[in-house]
């Protein structure tokens, strides 16, 4: 499974560094990007999305509704780093951590966010076995047929062939045709003589 990707936005370098360090140390979690200001984050989110965004406290204080909406739409979870417990937790935040929290609590919060994301990821057709239909398509790909030929042979549209291929790649973690061929042979879907 792909790691859960985090974005951190926090102006104070040492806090940003510490957060990034903590995230990287948790299983299945990785920091994708770090930003020191909201406008840098906005620039990035115009084009990209992420799993979890951690929003630092001073950013949090000046956060406009519009920006919050953007973060919400481009990241699946938000973790807030609040100044103290008195700050009312926003229901839009999956977790709110505090500067004075113990390290263990912060680590726990990150792990919880990662687990939550991992659940979402597992729901997708990812890591599960290939369907019979997909195995048929895989064989054809391995034999070197083009998308057009596979479509005609199986009475489906080339577009559907491409969708199948995408799903196969996602499930197996193999992108190239020669890689898929090896997989098909090693799993006895086709014989090596057919491709050599």
């Amino acid at each position: 499974m792909d790691k859960v990707a985090y974005i951190i936005v926090e102006p104070v370098p040492i806090v940003r560094w510490a957060l990034s360090r903590i995230v990287e140390e948790q299983p299945n979690s990785t920091v994708d990007k770090e930003f020191d200001s909201m406008h840098r984050l906005v620039d990035h989110l115009q084009k990209h999305s992420t799993d979890v965004t951690i929003v630092g406290q001073s950013i949090l204080l000046g956060l406009s509704a519009e920006h919050l909406k953007l973060i919400k739409s481009k990241s699946k979870l938000i973790v807030a780093l609040a100044e103290n417990e008195a700050q009312t937790p926003n229901p839009l935040f999956f977790e709110t951590i505090h500067q004075h929290d113990s390290l263990q609590n912060i680590q726990k919060a990150i792990r919880k966010a990662t687990c939550e994301m991992a659940k979402h990821k597992d729901n997708k057709p990812n890591g599960s076995a290939l369907s019979d239909r997909e195995i048929d398509i895989l064989k054809d790909i391995a034999l070197g047929l083009s998308a057009k030929e596979i479509a005609a042979k199986n009475f489906i549209s080339p577009h559907t062939v491409i969708t199948h291929r995408k799903n196969i790649t996602k499930k197996l973690g193999i992108k190239t045709t020669s890689g898929l061929t090896i997989y098909a042979v090693l799993n006895k879907h086709i014989r090596i003589e057919e491709v050599e």
Binding site: L172, G173, K175, G179, I182, Y183, L186, N187
Partner: peptide, 16 residues
């Protein structure tokens, strides 16, 4: 690097 990723995965996940 892309093709290397496939080879790695084949060795890690699918080799007999």
């Amino acid at each position: 690097e892309e093709k290397l990723f496939d080879l790695k995965n084949i060795l890690i996940k699918y080799i007999p």
